[in-house]
Design a protein around this nucleic acid. Structure first.
Lengths: 189, 189
DNA sequence: GAAGCCACTTGATCTATATCAAGAAATCAA
DNA sequence: TTGATTTCTTGATATAGATCAAGTGGCTTC
């Protein structure tokens, strides 16, 4: 069983048969460090499962970049609004390291329910789960300090802190690299 | 055509027949000012369409309340994670004024696809839309000042500012009532 | 292994926003 | 109406976090 199948299984509770059917639509692909998976304004006609490496979701403002998310091993990556509504992407997605993904294109993605009767239900659960995660994230900005947000992320995703330029994590947590660095030192003591 | 049907139509692009079918599942209900639509820890076994009035989504912390959202005329209200995953609700939802809603209970909600073949697709689009809105909200915390967030909300939902205790709007924007008040004065000049 | 480039750290200072404390205004209750 | 709450404003002050400006220490590249 591939990583992809394993992941789909834990996540979606498919039968072995459905698992294989779904997985067959995903094609392996490598994005080299620095290459873009997606650029702002382009249509997003694919969904990928991240097998190894890291992708950063970000936006360029006049005076700085804002990192919205960093996707690591075991996550899916796409611009959901782009995929679902065929809108131009609102995010850049770029490889921080050489990154191996399995990709399904929109056409195949949209056809999944023909082959997997339970797909629409599964897909709903998945998107609802993503929604719920974002609700928590919004709540963290409403109710937590920079230090508390740092600690939450550190507890839940320690590996990130060794593998990614820290300035990107800082941005994703809504603070400057300097603040991040000071909090980090404080927590190490 | 009821408000509900009208709203469902603009939102979901149903046929007239499907529209009537769906709408028939929703029962009118009134929540008096101060009453709770939902309490933290309780299961959320319903979804409602807000016909008039206002509901506030919030959490009690030790030393303060945090308002996560205020739902007004024309919005849906539920705890999505509760509805979809049958988890205990993570939010309190309380009426700020006497509020008229149309409510569908979970059992009926889950059965919709039996009557409306296009329901799963529609439901997916709806949840994906909610997700996308939250993405924008997260981004606003990563990239905007309190004043910028104030202005964004003011432009997009001016009525809210006349109808709701301002402290709740302040909380929902991630600032104190004092800061909100000062920004407000500044913008009025 | 020197030169250059990043990423990170650290200190000094600044600023947006929070906190604290009163008062004014609005709303509610009887 | 009148008093009692609650909400909003305003000022004074405090502070978390930003900004600015040098460093330092790795990596990379030739």
């Amino acid at each position: 069983m591939t990583d992809l199948e394993q992941y789909l299984q834990t996540y979606f509770d498919f039968t072995q048969t459905d698992l294989a059917k779904v997985a067959a639509f995903f094609k392996p692909e490598v994005i080299r460090k620095g290459e873009f998976y997606l650029k702002i304004g382009k249509p997003c006609q694919k969904l990928s499962f991240l097998q190894s490496g890291m992708l950063r979701v970000f936006v360029d403002l006049e005076d700085r970049e804002v990192t919205q998310w960093i996707s690591t091993k075991g996550y899916f990556i796409t611009d959901l609004a782009g995929l679902v509504f065929s809108k131009p992407s609102r995010w850049n997605i770029q490889a921080l390291t050489d990154t191996a993904v399995y990709t399904i294109d929109k056409t195949d993605y949209d056809s999944l329910s023909k082959y997997i009767p339970r797909w629409p239900e599964t897909e709903k659960l998945f998107i609802a789960h993503c929604f719920s995660t974002l609700e928590d994230r919004v709540f963290s900005f409403l109710s937590k300090t920079a230090e508390e947000r740092y600690n939450m992320l550190f507890e839940s995703n320690r590996e990130l802190f060794n593998q990614v330029p820290l300035q990107y994590i800082a941005s994703m947590l809504g603070m400057t690299p300097e603040t991040f660095s000071r909090i980090r030192r404080k927590q190490l003591n």
